[in-house]
Amino acid sequence: MCGATEGGLPLDGINTKIEAIIQGQVTKDGSPVGVAYVRLLDKSGEFTAEVPVSATGHFRFFAGDGEWTLRTLAPGADTVDRKVIAAVGSIAEVEIAL
């Protein structure tokens, strides 16, 4: 897990200087959620990407500079929207509690 944030997805082989990374973890009642989908919407609300979370609830996007929305869908939970600001050369960490 060289280069990873604690407990998160590895950043091996990724040039973080040129990427605007948005990543985080989906939890419910304090525990990681292993089945959930996180969608990345652009500033106009348009779909840009979607990933299933890892077994530990983690997700990551390579976005661009600006404001984005993370929309999380999971079985038996309401949809959760979270705004996030991304910037090239930085990692925006987002914790999503269902």
Partner: peptide
């Protein structure tokens, strides 16, 4: 996606 169309991104954001 609109950002790929416009040339602001080259691949899907994941």
């Amino acid at each position: 996606s609109p950002d790929e169309f416009a040339g602001r991104l080259l691949a899907p954001a994941h």
